[in-house]
Protein backbone atom coordinates (compact mmCIF):
# COMPACT_ATOMS: atom_id res chain seq x y z
CA UNK A 1 0.00 0.00 0.00
CA UNK A 2 1.49 3.33 -1.01
CA UNK A 3 1.42 6.49 1.08
CA UNK A 4 -1.36 8.15 -0.87
CA UNK A 5 -3.66 5.14 -0.57
CA UNK A 6 -2.90 4.92 3.12
CA UNK A 7 -3.66 8.62 3.48
CA UNK A 8 -6.97 8.32 1.64
CA UNK A 9 -8.02 5.35 3.77
CA UNK A 10 -7.14 7.31 6.90
CA UNK A 11 -9.43 10.09 5.71
CA UNK A 12 -12.13 7.55 4.88
CA UNK A 13 -11.87 5.98 8.33
CA UNK A 14 -12.31 9.40 9.93
CA UNK A 15 -15.40 10.07 7.84
CA UNK A 16 -16.85 6.66 8.74
CA UNK A 17 -16.18 7.30 12.44
CA UNK A 18 -18.06 10.57 12.15
CA UNK A 19 -20.89 8.77 10.36
CA UNK A 20 -21.03 6.23 13.19
CA UNK A 21 -20.95 8.86 15.92
CA UNK A 22 -23.74 10.74 14.17
CA UNK A 23 -25.75 7.57 13.53
CA UNK A 24 -25.62 6.34 17.13
CA UNK A 25 -25.96 9.91 18.41
CA UNK A 26 -29.09 10.42 16.34
CA UNK A 27 -30.67 7.43 18.09
CA UNK A 28 -29.22 8.62 21.39
CA UNK A 29 -27.52 5.53 22.78
CA UNK A 30 -25.48 2.63 21.47
CA UNK A 31 -22.35 0.50 21.40
CA UNK A 32 -20.06 3.32 20.36
CA UNK A 33 -16.89 1.86 21.91
CA UNK A 34 -16.71 -1.37 19.95
CA UNK A 35 -18.01 0.32 16.80
CA UNK A 36 -15.14 2.79 16.72
CA UNK A 37 -12.42 0.29 17.67
CA UNK A 38 -12.99 -1.82 14.53
CA UNK A 39 -13.41 1.06 12.09
CA UNK A 40 -9.87 1.07 10.74
CA UNK A 41 -9.96 -2.67 10.09
CA UNK A 42 -13.32 -2.40 8.32
CA UNK A 43 -12.02 0.48 6.23
CA UNK A 44 -9.05 -1.53 5.00
CA UNK A 45 -11.14 -4.63 4.34
CA UNK A 46 -13.99 -2.92 2.50
CA UNK A 47 -12.09 -0.18 0.65
CA UNK A 48 -8.90 -1.94 -0.37
CA UNK A 49 -9.11 -5.73 -0.01
CA UNK A 50 -12.51 -7.32 -0.31
CA UNK A 51 -13.91 -8.61 -3.58
CA UNK A 52 -17.41 -7.17 -3.28
CA UNK A 53 -19.98 -5.49 -5.48
CA UNK A 54 -22.57 -3.25 -3.83
CA UNK A 55 -24.76 -3.64 -6.93
CA UNK A 56 -24.66 -7.40 -6.59
CA UNK A 57 -24.48 -7.96 -2.84
CA UNK A 58 -25.12 -11.72 -3.08
CA UNK A 59 -22.65 -12.61 -5.82
CA UNK A 60 -21.38 -16.09 -5.11
CA UNK A 61 -17.64 -15.48 -5.28
CA UNK A 62 -17.66 -12.38 -3.12
CA UNK A 63 -15.56 -12.16 0.01
CA UNK A 64 -17.62 -12.44 3.19
CA UNK A 65 -17.35 -10.17 6.21
CA UNK A 66 -18.89 -11.51 9.41
CA UNK A 67 -19.19 -9.14 12.33
CA UNK A 68 -19.39 -11.82 15.00
CA UNK A 69 -19.38 -9.15 17.71
CA UNK A 70 -22.81 -8.28 16.41
CA UNK A 71 -23.26 -5.18 18.55
CA UNK A 72 -20.84 -3.43 16.18
CA UNK A 73 -23.61 -3.49 13.58
CA UNK A 74 -23.55 0.30 13.18
CA UNK A 75 -19.89 0.10 12.10
CA UNK A 76 -20.99 -2.18 9.27
CA UNK A 77 -23.96 0.02 8.41
CA UNK A 78 -21.97 3.21 7.91
CA UNK A 79 -19.57 1.33 5.63
CA UNK A 80 -22.34 -0.37 3.65
CA UNK A 81 -24.26 2.90 3.28
CA UNK A 82 -21.14 4.70 2.15
CA UNK A 83 -20.48 1.98 -0.45
CA UNK A 84 -24.05 2.24 -1.74
CA UNK A 85 -25.59 -1.01 -0.51
CA UNK A 86 -28.53 1.07 0.69
CA UNK A 87 -29.37 4.79 0.92
CA UNK A 88 -27.49 6.78 3.51
CA UNK A 89 -30.85 8.05 4.75
CA UNK A 90 -31.35 4.64 6.33
CA UNK A 91 -28.70 5.49 8.93
CA UNK A 92 -31.18 7.85 10.57
CA UNK A 93 -33.47 4.87 11.23
CA UNK A 94 -30.98 2.89 13.35
CA UNK A 95 -32.88 0.92 15.99
CA UNK A 96 -36.09 2.80 15.31
CA UNK A 97 -39.41 1.01 14.83
CA UNK A 98 -39.46 -0.97 11.60
CA UNK A 99 -35.84 -0.26 10.71
CA UNK A 100 -33.63 -2.36 8.47
CA UNK A 101 -30.69 -1.46 10.70
CA UNK A 102 -31.04 -3.17 14.08
CA UNK A 103 -28.32 -2.75 16.70
CA UNK A 104 -27.06 -6.29 16.00
CA UNK A 105 -26.39 -7.45 12.44
CA UNK A 106 -29.28 -9.15 10.67
CA UNK A 107 -28.68 -10.73 7.26
CA UNK A 108 -32.41 -10.85 6.56
CA UNK A 109 -32.83 -7.12 6.96
CA UNK A 110 -29.70 -5.36 5.76
CA UNK A 111 -28.23 -5.59 2.25
CA UNK A 112 -24.55 -6.45 2.45
CA UNK A 113 -24.72 -8.19 5.82
CA UNK A 114 -23.45 -11.73 5.26
CA UNK A 115 -24.45 -13.16 8.62
CA UNK A 116 -26.74 -12.43 11.52
CA UNK A 117 -25.00 -11.99 14.86
CA UNK A 118 -25.80 -10.93 18.38
CA UNK A 119 -25.44 -14.07 20.45
CA UNK A 120 -21.69 -13.92 20.96
CA UNK A 121 -19.38 -16.64 19.74
CA UNK A 122 -21.62 -17.86 16.95
CA UNK A 123 -20.25 -15.87 14.02
CA UNK A 124 -16.89 -17.59 14.03
CA UNK A 125 -18.43 -21.05 13.62
CA UNK A 126 -20.45 -19.70 10.72
CA UNK A 127 -17.32 -18.20 9.18
CA UNK A 128 -15.60 -21.57 9.51
CA UNK A 129 -18.53 -23.22 7.74
CA UNK A 130 -18.35 -20.63 4.96
CA UNK A 131 -14.62 -21.23 4.58
CA UNK A 132 -15.14 -25.00 4.42
CA UNK A 133 -17.92 -24.65 1.84
CA UNK A 134 -15.79 -22.25 -0.21
CA UNK A 135 -12.99 -24.80 -0.30
CA UNK A 136 -15.43 -27.54 -1.30
CA UNK A 137 -16.68 -25.43 -4.20
CA UNK A 138 -13.26 -24.03 -5.15
CA UNK A 139 -14.82 -20.64 -4.52
CA UNK A 140 -12.01 -18.06 -4.22
CA UNK A 141 -13.82 -16.11 -1.48
CA UNK A 142 -11.89 -14.96 1.54
CA UNK A 143 -13.92 -15.10 4.75
CA UNK A 144 -13.23 -12.26 7.17
CA UNK A 145 -14.57 -12.59 10.69
CA UNK A 146 -14.26 -9.97 13.39
CA UNK A 147 -14.60 -11.14 16.98
CA UNK A 148 -14.46 -9.23 20.23
CA UNK A 149 -12.07 -9.84 23.11
CA UNK A 150 -14.93 -10.26 25.56
CA UNK A 151 -16.52 -12.55 22.99
CA UNK A 152 -13.45 -14.79 23.19
CA UNK A 153 -14.70 -15.83 26.63
CA UNK A 154 -17.41 -17.82 24.84
CA UNK A 155 -16.49 -21.50 24.53
CA UNK A 156 -17.80 -21.64 20.97
CA UNK A 157 -14.95 -19.38 19.84
CA UNK A 158 -12.53 -22.13 20.82
CA UNK A 159 -14.59 -24.92 19.28
CA UNK A 160 -14.59 -23.01 16.03
CA UNK A 161 -10.90 -22.10 16.31
CA UNK A 162 -9.96 -25.72 16.90
CA UNK A 163 -11.73 -26.80 13.72
CA UNK A 164 -10.35 -23.91 11.67
CA UNK A 165 -6.81 -24.62 12.83
CA UNK A 166 -7.20 -28.35 12.37
CA UNK A 167 -8.45 -27.93 8.81
CA UNK A 168 -5.87 -25.26 7.92
CA UNK A 169 -8.54 -22.92 6.60
CA UNK A 170 -6.22 -20.44 4.91
CA UNK A 171 -9.19 -18.68 3.31
CA UNK A 172 -10.29 -17.58 6.79
CA UNK A 173 -9.02 -14.31 8.25
CA UNK A 174 -10.15 -13.79 11.84
CA UNK A 175 -9.54 -10.45 13.49
CA UNK A 176 -9.63 -10.01 17.25
CA UNK A 177 -10.69 -6.53 18.30
CA UNK A 178 -8.44 -6.46 21.35
CA UNK A 179 -9.58 -3.27 23.02
CA UNK A 180 -9.20 -4.85 26.48
CA UNK A 181 -12.61 -3.74 27.73
CA UNK A 182 -15.95 -5.47 28.02
CA UNK A 183 -19.35 -4.38 29.26
CA UNK A 184 -18.61 -4.65 32.97
CA UNK A 185 -14.97 -3.60 32.96
CA UNK A 186 -11.50 -4.76 31.98
CA UNK A 187 -11.25 -8.11 30.23
CA UNK A 188 -8.17 -8.88 32.34
CA UNK A 189 -10.12 -8.35 35.56
CA UNK A 190 -13.23 -10.28 34.57
CA UNK A 191 -11.92 -13.40 32.79
CA UNK A 192 -8.58 -12.80 31.15
CA UNK A 193 -8.08 -14.09 27.62
CA UNK A 194 -4.32 -13.35 27.65
CA UNK A 195 -2.08 -14.59 26.05
CA UNK A 196 -4.09 -14.39 22.86
CA UNK A 197 -1.19 -14.80 20.45
CA UNK A 198 0.00 -17.98 22.13
CA UNK A 199 -3.55 -19.30 22.39
CA UNK A 200 -4.33 -19.02 18.71
CA UNK A 201 -0.85 -20.20 17.71
CA UNK A 202 -1.45 -23.31 19.76
CA UNK A 203 -4.70 -23.82 17.85
CA UNK A 204 -2.70 -23.92 14.61
CA UNK A 205 -3.32 -20.38 13.43
CA UNK A 206 -0.90 -18.07 11.68
CA UNK A 207 -1.06 -15.19 14.16
CA UNK A 208 -0.06 -11.59 13.58
CA UNK A 209 -0.32 -8.91 16.26
CA UNK A 210 -0.53 -5.32 15.10
CA UNK A 211 -1.73 -1.84 15.98
CA UNK A 212 -5.38 -2.06 14.99
CA UNK A 213 -5.47 1.61 14.12
CA UNK A 214 -2.48 1.50 11.74
CA UNK A 215 -3.94 1.37 8.23
CA UNK A 216 -0.72 0.15 6.59
CA UNK A 217 -0.15 -2.50 9.23
CA UNK A 218 -3.69 -3.83 8.76
CA UNK A 219 -3.20 -3.92 5.01
CA UNK A 220 0.13 -5.73 5.29
CA UNK A 221 -1.28 -8.24 7.77
CA UNK A 222 -4.13 -9.15 5.42
CA UNK A 223 -1.66 -9.56 2.55
CA UNK A 224 0.55 -11.77 4.71
CA UNK A 225 -2.43 -13.83 5.80
CA UNK A 226 -3.32 -14.77 2.24
CA UNK A 227 -0.15 -16.79 1.75
CA UNK A 228 0.06 -18.34 5.18
CA UNK A 229 -1.31 -21.78 4.40
CA UNK A 230 -3.11 -21.76 7.74
CA UNK A 231 -6.15 -20.26 9.36
CA UNK A 232 -5.32 -16.68 10.17
CA UNK A 233 -5.65 -14.58 13.28
CA UNK A 234 -4.84 -10.89 13.24
CA UNK A 235 -4.79 -9.49 16.75
CA UNK A 236 -5.78 -5.85 16.51
CA UNK A 237 -4.56 -3.89 19.50
CA UNK A 238 -7.22 -1.25 19.64
CA UNK A 239 -8.67 1.46 21.80
CA UNK A 240 -12.34 1.20 22.67
CA UNK A 241 -14.11 4.33 21.49
CA UNK A 242 -11.13 5.32 19.32
CA UNK A 243 -11.67 8.66 17.63
CA UNK A 244 -14.45 10.02 19.84
CA UNK A 245 -13.01 12.09 22.63
CA UNK A 246 -16.01 11.63 24.89
CA UNK A 247 -15.83 7.85 24.47
CA UNK A 248 -12.09 7.56 24.95
CA UNK A 249 -12.39 9.69 28.10
CA UNK A 250 -15.21 7.62 29.56
CA UNK A 251 -14.45 4.98 32.18
CA UNK A 252 -16.31 2.50 30.03
CA UNK A 253 -17.75 3.28 26.63
CA UNK A 254 -19.13 -0.17 25.72
CA UNK A 255 -22.55 1.39 25.40
CA UNK A 256 -23.25 5.00 26.20
CA UNK A 257 -25.68 7.83 25.79
CA UNK A 258 -24.71 10.32 23.10
CA UNK A 259 -26.51 13.66 23.00
CA UNK A 260 -26.98 15.79 19.91
CA UNK A 261 -24.55 18.30 21.37
CA UNK A 262 -21.94 15.55 21.83
CA UNK A 263 -22.12 14.15 18.32
CA UNK A 264 -22.23 17.55 16.61
CA UNK A 265 -19.24 18.79 18.60
CA UNK A 266 -17.27 15.60 17.95
CA UNK A 267 -17.94 15.50 14.21
CA UNK A 268 -18.05 19.23 13.57
CA UNK A 269 -21.28 18.56 11.67
CA UNK A 270 -23.51 21.49 12.54
CA UNK A 271 -25.23 21.81 9.19
CA UNK A 272 -26.86 18.36 8.92
Amino acid sequence: MDASQSQSLTVKARQLRDDAIQTIGTFGVGHIGGVLSVMDALTVIFYSKANIDPKNPRKQDRDRVIMSKGHAGPAMYVVLADLGYFPKEWLKTLNKNGTNLPSHCDMQKTPGIDMTAGSLGQGLSVAVGMAMAAKLDKNPATIYCIIGDGEAQEGQIWEASMLAGSRKLDNLVVMLDYNKMQLDGKVSDINDIYPVVDKWKSFGFYVQEIDGHDIEAISDAIDNAKGSGRANMIVLNTVKGKGASFAEAAANCHSMTITEDMWRKETGRYDV
Partner: peptide, 16 residues
Protein backbone atom coordinates in the same frame (compact mmCIF):
# COMPACT_ATOMS: atom_id res chain seq x y z
CA UNK B 1 -18.62 -29.89 19.39
CA UNK B 2 -22.32 -29.68 18.58
CA UNK B 3 -22.61 -25.91 18.99
CA UNK B 4 -19.84 -25.41 16.49
CA UNK B 5 -21.37 -28.03 14.18
CA UNK B 6 -24.63 -26.10 13.95
CA UNK B 7 -22.75 -22.85 13.26
CA UNK B 8 -20.62 -24.54 10.60
CA UNK B 9 -23.78 -25.96 9.02
CA UNK B 10 -25.33 -22.49 9.03
CA UNK B 11 -22.22 -21.08 7.34
CA UNK B 12 -22.42 -23.77 4.67
CA UNK B 13 -26.11 -22.98 4.18
CA UNK B 14 -25.23 -19.34 3.46
CA UNK B 15 -22.99 -20.64 0.68
CA UNK B 16 -25.88 -22.55 -0.89
Amino acid sequence: AEQNMIGVAAGMATMG
